[in-house]
Design a protein around this nucleic acid. Structure first.
Lengths: 350, 350
DNA sequence: AGTCGTAACTTAGACGATTAAGTATAAATT
DNA sequence: AATTTATACTTAATCGTCTAAGTTACGACT
C-alpha cells in the first residue's frame, strides 16, 4: 500500500513545480500542451488520485452531506428507497453522502455523540426523524450551525414529509367517485409486517383525518375502526380479521382503507377466507405495499414516495447550503405514489 | 450562516496562540488549568467544532470508509440490515461511512466515475457486489490503491459472503433428522416478492448444492424443482403452485425447501388452498423471511445474516486498513441465522 | 549565586491542494 | 531596435489543524 501518491511526487518525476502539475491536471491553459500530456501520463502511471479532503480545505466546502438516523434498534428505519433518492440527488450535485446513527436515549445520556455532530465534516445535515430520537440530540442538531433538513417531520423549520392528509382524502374520494358509500378506515397497524413506519404518529392521524374530511364532505358518516386500547402488536392481525368476520353482509362496508400493510394484509387474507370476492364484494385500498397478493388480486395502494421524499429533502438542503442564509421556514409535503392494483372496483351490492 | 468558527477565532478571543487553543481543547497538560477552562468556555460560547477534514489532513488518515453499491435501478440492492451492520462496526472504530453508487453499464461507458473513486476520500472501500456492476468499475476498484473488501462475492481477494452451501446442507439435514425422506428443493425465484437477492448466481447454486450433498449423503435421491427455461418472473408463483397441486399425495414430498421468499410464499398459499396442513402434511423451509404468515403458521427460515455480514466485512476492511500491507487473500463465509418458525415438524404420513 | 528544570506558552513547519502574484523567455508590435 | 504582450512557468500564501522545536519566566537545587 505505502503512502498515497501526491501532486508533489508527480512534480518531482516530471521535474517541475507542484503548481504546474496542479494546473496541468485540471487542464488549465496556463500550461503547455506538452507538459499537460506528460503530467497526465505520469499521474496515470503512478496511480494518482487527488486528496479530496485537501481540496475541500482549500475550497472551504466539504462537498459532503450527513444523513442521521435513529439508532439501529429501530429495525429498517432507513428505507432503501429513501437512501436512493437522497443519494441520486446529491451525486448529481457532486456531493458525498455520509451516513451516521444517532445514539438512543441511554447512550445519549452517557454523552455519546455521533461523529457527524462531534466534528465538522459536512456542509449540511439530513435527519430522518423518528419519535425515538433523544431530545438531547435534537437540541444538539438544532443549535448546530449547519443547515439541516428533517425528513418525516412536520414540525421543524425545514422539513419534508409525506402528504398523508391528502393521501387519505384522495384515496377516499376515489372510492366515493366509484360509488362507494359504506367505506371504513381500519387501523390495526404495528403488526408483524410493519417493519418500517416512519413518523407513525402524525401519519396515522393525518391519513385518518383525510378520510374523515372526504366522508364528511360527501355527507357520509366516517367509520373509523381502531383497537380500543393498546393491543399487543401480535394480536392485531386477528382483530382486523375478527372485525371483518363480524360484519353483517347488508351493512358491511363495500370498501375499506387500511392504514399500512400490517392492517391490510390480515383484512385481505380474512376476506379470501370468508369467501368474499375482491374487489366485487370488498374493495381494499392500502397505504403501502404489503406483498401478500402472490396468487390473488394485487393490492391497490397509496405508497409513501420514499424516493421522491429523499430527492426533495436533498434538494432542499442543497438550496440552503448554497444560500448560506439563516433558515427561513420551509415545509414540503410530497404527494403519495398511487398504484392502481386490482383490489378496487365500483360496488356491486348497492 | 457565516463562516465556521476556527481555532484561530478562539485564539484571538482569549488572546493566545492557536496552538495553545489546540492543546487546551484536547486537554493536554502543556496548558495551565485556567487557560484550558477559559478556552473550552469560549469554544462552547462560539459554537466551535473542529474541522474534521483539516484533522484528517494532518493525521494522514481520512477516518472514512466508502461503501459502493450498484446503481439504484436494482431496487433494494442495499439491505438496511447490511448497512446497519457496517455502520455499527465502523462507528465503534470511529470511522465515518460514505455511501456511493456505481454507474450502470451505460453510464460507465460514458466515463462516469463515482465520487468515491474519482477522489481520494476514504481509507478503504466496501463493495456490495452485484452481477450488474460494470466490469470497467470492478477493474477501477481493483487497480486502485485502497484496501477493499467485497460483500456477496466469493471470488475476490478479500470478501465476505453468506454460507449458502452450509445453509442448504443444514436445512436439509434438519429435515432428515426429523425423519423426512421425500424432500424437494424448489427454486422459482425472482418473482414479485423477490426484491433483494444479492449475488443470486452462486447463492442459488450453492444452496441447491448443499441440499444435494445432504440428500446424497443420506442415500436419498435429490428432487430439484426448477423452471425448465427462463420463465417470466410474474408467472413463477403460479408454477410453484401448479407443481404442488400436481403431486400425487402418496408420492408428494413431506417437506420442501424453497429458495427465497418468492418461491416459498406461493407454495405456502397453495398448500393452504389445497387444504394441506402446515406442517403436518407439508413442512416448509424458506431461505428468507417472506412475511406472508399473517394469520397462519410462521415460516421456518434460514436468513442471510445481513447484519453480521456487514459487521464482518467492516471488521475485515478495518484490519486491512490498519495493516497497511499488500492484501493477502481473505475469504469469510458467514453462517445463516436460523428462525425455527412453525412450518416444520416430523413427517406424519410415512 | 549560578545552573538546572519545568510550566506555559510561542514560532515554524507540515499535511495536499489551490489561487494570486510574480518572473523569465520568446514572439509580436510599432 | 525598443517596447509591449503572450507563454509557461515559479514562488508565496492560504485553508484549519497538528507536532516538533524553540523561548520565555520563574522557582528549586547545589
Amino acid at each position: 500500500m505505502g503512502r498515497a501518491v501526491t501532486i508533489k511526487d508527480i512534480a518531482k518525476r516530471v521535474g517541475q513545480s507542484n503548481v504546474t502539475v496542479s494546473y496541468a491536471l485540471r487542464g488549465s491553459t496556463e500550461v503547455s500542451e506538452a507538459t499537460r500530456l506528460r503530467v497526465k501520463e505520469v499521474a496515470r502511471e503512478m496511480g494518482y488520485r487527488a486528496n479530496g479532503f485537501a481540496r475541500s480545505m482549500q475550497s472551504g466546502r466539504f462537498g459532503n452531506i450527513g444523513l442521521l438516523c435513529s439508532s439501529e434498534s429501530a429495525r429498517s428505519n432507513l428505507p432503501t428507497e429513501l437512501l436512493n433518492g437522497i443519494e441520486s440527488e446529491l451525486a448529481g450535485a457532486k456531493y458525498h453522502l455520509t451516513v451516521g446513527r444517532l445514539p438512543d436515549e441511554k447512550l445519549a445520556s452517557q454523552g455519546v455523540v455521533p461523529g457527524l455532530l462531534a466534528e465538522w465534516t459536512a456542509d449540511g445535515l439530513l435527519i430522518n426523524y423518528q419519535e425515538s430520537i433523544p431530545s438531547r440530540m435534537i437540541e444538539l442538531i438544532e443549535t448546530d450551525h449547519v443547515p439541516a433538513v428533517w425528513i418525516n417531520s412536520k414540525q421543524r423549520d425545514a422539513c419534508v414529509y409525506a402528504a398523508d392528509l391528502d393521501a387519505g382524502r384522495s384515496a377516499t374520494e376515489q372510492l366515493l367517485r366509484m360509488g362507494h358509500r359504506r367505506i371504513a378506515y381500519v387501523d390495526y397497524s404495528h403488526g408483524q409486517l410493519d417493519l418500517a413506519e416512519p413518523g407513525v404518529h402524525y401519519s396515522a392521524a393525518d391519513r385518518a383525518a383525510g378520510y374523515e374530511q372526504a366522508m364528511i364532505g360527501a355527507g357520509l358518516p366516517p367509520q373509523l375502526i381502531r383497537p380500543e386500547r393498546k393491543v399487543a402488536p401480535e394480536l392485531r392481525p386477528q382483530l382486523a380479521s375478527d372485525w371483518l368476520a363480524a360484519q353483517v353482509p347488508q351493512a358491511r362496508p363495500t370498501a375499506v382503507l387500511g392504514y399500512s400493510g400490517s392492517t391490510t394484509a390480515p383484512l385481505y387474507i380474512a376476506a379470501l377466507r370468508l369467501g368474499l370476492r375482491i374487489p366485487e364484494d370488498l374493495s381494499i385500498v392500502s397505504f403501502d405495499d404489503a406483498a401478500i397478493y402472490i396468487l390473488g388480486p394485487r393490492l391497490t395502494t397509496w405508497v409513501v414516495p420514499q424516493h421522491e421524499m429523499g430527492r426533495s429533502a436533498a434538494r432542499m438542503l442543497l438550496d440552503r447550503v448554497a444560500a448560506k442564509v439563516s433558515p427561513t421556514e420551509t415545509r414540503l409535503a410530497v404527494a403519495f405514489d398511487f398504484d392502481p392494483g386490482q383490489t378496487v372496483s365500483p360496488p356491486t351490492n348497492l
